[in-house]
Each structure stands twice: as structure tokens, then as C-alpha cells.
Amino acid sequence: MATENAQTPLLQLENVRAGYGEAVVLDGVSLSVPEGGSLAVLGRNGVGKTTLLLTIMGFVNLMQGTVRFAGRDISGAPPHKRARAGLGWVPQERDIFASLTVEENLTATARAGQGNAGRWDLSSVYDLFPRLKERRANMGNQLSGGEQQMLAIARTLMTNPSILILDEPLEGLAPIIVEELIAKIGAMAKDEGMALVLVEQHAEVALGLTDQAIVIERGVIAHAAGSAELLKDQATLDRYVGLNLEGE
């Protein structure tokens, strides 16, 4: 489901320098994701991958450069306005609201989307993750890691975003859950044309789910390529991502 409107990228970063306080973590980062496109963000631990996502969401001090979303400059917008504009962030720590039930976690921040982004509601996310329906009355802190990750993704889908921004969604999960999540994220990106930014330690998985990829090294983009092409480029992967291609 490629879109015709390819001239305006959905998400675009231009020459971004960002960090915490005075400390610069990202320097000179530019990237763009078209509507329905998907981008893998690879790199070793601590190179700035999560900071990149936090910069997109407005949690990090943007020192230079611009962040555009759907053609609008959102560089100065607070996080809640970015979320309402259609950026669907799924945080790394999952950050499930512990004193809300599973269903309240889904409904408290739910929003109707604009246009074709309006498809997610309680029944459709329960169809996607039937486990959550079984646990709908449980409190957010009574879930397993896999269930928490499903809830975190479902909670963001309920905001009907036009892009899904996932921060290491498979980290620390049992292999069977990892398989399930890969299949479902893949279905959303490939079959439904949900735009995707995916930070992931497992390069093979991330490259399989996306069409473009960047590799971050010490706060700058060290390499950018098509995902399929990078998947075959063992030398580059070895150099920047290390052991992760083999998986665990």
C-alpha cells in the first residue's frame, strides 16, 4: 500500500543535534520516513538510538535542526501535542500504567484517528492481542513481560497513530512471544501500510520488518541503506552492530 503522496515525507529530521542538558548525544542526524514507509534504527547499546526516538517525541533538548511531521515543523511542540498529531510512541520500558486496569490503559489515552488511521478501537486491538482481552480487568502491574509489551503496543494503537515508533519491543521476551510480535508488527507494516520506526538490537529481525535502515554510531548516522541490501552486507553489520545478527 504505497501512497502517491511521496513528495512530502511523513516524518523528517534535518540536521538534528540533541541531548540532555549540555551533553550532546545526537549530532547532525537527518532522516526521513515516507507515508507507509518503515525505518530500522540499528547500532550498539548507548549510541543514541533511544535518544533519537525521544527527540522525535519532544522529550529531549533539541539544540539545532528541525523535526517535521506530516509537513509541519513540530520542533517546538510539547510531547502530548506530537502524540495527538499522530506520532505513536511505544516506550522502551513499556511504561504500563500500574494503577490502571488493562482496559483503562487502553482507553485512557485512546483517540479517534483522522482518515484511514481511525481503525483501532477496543475490539480491534483485542482481536490483535486476544490475551489482553482475557486480562482486561487485571491491573497494569499484574502482567508478564510479553503481555506488558502487547499492552504497550495496543495502547499506542488506540491513539490511532499514523506512524508507530517502537523502542526495542522484543527486548527480554520469551522466543514464542517474540515470534508472535514479529508477525503482528510485520502484518501492520507490510499489509496495512502503517509507517514504522523500529529500534531493535536484533538486526536481522529489524531489517526483515522494514524497508530502509540507518546505523547509528556515537550519535551520528554511520550508514544508511535499504534493509534488504544491508541484510546481505555482513561486513557493515559486523562493524557497527556486532554480534547481534546471529540472534540469541
Binding site: M57, F59, P78, A83, R84, F97, L100, A108, T109
Partner: peptide, 24 residues
Amino acid sequence: TRFGAQIRAAVDNQRAAQGLGIDV
């Protein structure tokens, strides 16, 4: 109520609440 759930969400995790669109 939804507003009550948003208060509790904002208290539980202010950053996640903001990142999901709650004007904390």
C-alpha cells in the same frame, strides 16, 4: 471516568502519559 484514569496515568508515569497525548 476517563479523566480520573488520565489523572492516575499521569501520576503513575508522567512521561508515558505525555507521550500518549495527555496534557499533564
